[in-house]
Design a protein around this nucleic acid. Structure first.
Lengths: 233, 233
DNA sequence: GTATCCCAGATGATATACGATCCTGCGACC
DNA sequence: GGTCGCAGGATCGTATATCATCTGGGATAC
């Protein structure tokens, strides 16, 4: 008989990978948190081999740093690296937007507008967590018809790395929320213009890119204002 | 004292990774070549564990596909995937060029011009291999002062994936070589213009992007002409 | 003749065990 | 008092062994 206990089709290394990624993304494992192979293996009721594999995979994605004979920890991301990651994300998001724009259906555009309206209403009783969720949803709708999965993959990697930083010092800039919603409107307008032949793909791309670089600039400006004396450690 | 026997500091998994990547990149392991853990472990005189890790790392980079309980093989890349990869490479290369442009010193610009001249001379007695090498060198010089290592990392990943295809059907298009050299000239001219305030970063970026998409289009066109009846397997 | 089932070989996945390396703290010596 | 050196523990790195799974071929039933 051998009832296969419902779902044996997922490997242990996969389980370990999912386990770790979940905790890193939702902030339970903050940057700098040490990942000890033997300890994790015990928690997950498996040997160290699959755990090791999972950690190496996360390392390849930039979520974890791993040093030989020393150990692994959730990646600690410095300000310059954050800046570089966000610049790259701006690049690929902008491109993804331009690629998707001509393929967006009326229904998809309406859905995106609707999400953005929810974001606007969310501005009143402001909840950063909910706002971030809606923001992700907005872009997910926008990128639905993107014909280049490679670019989307890069977008998702960028997003994931960003979430590693949730609880670090590079957090949300509340003042940006309103501008974000307005910029979304503008991007949606440009998409409609593009479909009507009144705007070029480059217009859409650069607008979408600037949308994220503006957020980045705001974060960096706040960081700078928080340490008036750069001489501090 | 402790002469550390020159270099014992390299792990076996690292050695296996280098070994495999070399063979994939220089074409000894062609796309589709099966990578059997036990066999490779025998060749490398190590156990399967480090080999497995190396293969998983290559999988994360897209050089290898790995299926559970079935095995690994050098990635077989379809035409659409090739197209998507190259589009992405065009995007990041264009951006990397624009980012580097304002920081290129006179010496670096001269070096780039010199490499391009060698490419031009190479057109006479044409050797695809040498031309490709020079092409890589040209871009390496161009990206030297790029301030965003993330973007450069994406460029290098794209290049590496491209080399996987060397011996597959997506090979070199000889007719493109001349245009390539001319486009390099044009890009270098735009960089100089940018530094003199006569061109914008976007001009440089889009020109560099078009440089690669033009190559892509040429490859795809040749592919299309090679199979007049798309019904063939 | 064809379809199905089953078995054996090949191969990957994981567990366990041992060795190598690095970090830490303590003590001795300058 | 400071610095060097030396255990000892913690942790990773790899080898070996065993289990699980897939694949392909051949026998058998229809």
């Amino acid at each position: 008989m051998t009832v296969p206990t419902t779902s044996t089709t997922v490997s242990k290394s996969q389980r370990a990978y999912t386990f770790l990624r979940e905790r890193i993304e939702d902030g339970r494992f903050v940057p700098g948190y040490r990942l000890v192979l033997a300890q994790l293996a015990g928690e997950l009721d498996m040997s160290v081999v699959p755990v090791r594999e999972a950690i190496r995979r996360l390392e390849a994605e930039g979520m974890v740093t791993f040093e030989r004979n020393v150990g692994a920890q959730v990646a600690l991301i410095k300000e310059t690296e954050y800046q570089h990651t966000m610049e790259t994300l701006a690049l690929v998001e902008g491109y993804a937007t331009a690629l998707s724009a001509p393929h967006l259906t009326g229904a998809q555009l309406d859905a995106a507008r609707e999400v953005n309206e929810r974001m606007r209403r969310c501005l009143a009783d402001f909840d950063p967590h909910r706002f971030t969720e809606l923001n992700l949803e907005f872009h997910a709708v926008l990128f639905e018809p993107c014909p280049n999965p490679h670019v989307l993959d890069l977008v998702h990697r960028g997003w994931r790395r960003m979430t590693v930083l949730r609880d670090s010092s590079f957090a949300f800039v509340p003042g940006r929320a309103q501008e974000s919603v307005a910029e979304h409107d503008r991007i949606l307008g440009l998409v409609a213009d593009l479909q009507a032949g009144r705007a070029t793909a480059t217009d859409v791309e650069l607008a979408a890119r600037r949308h994220r670089t503006a957020t980045l600039d705001a974060v960096l400006a706040r960081q700078a204002s928080r340490r008036p004396h750069p001489s501090e450690k």
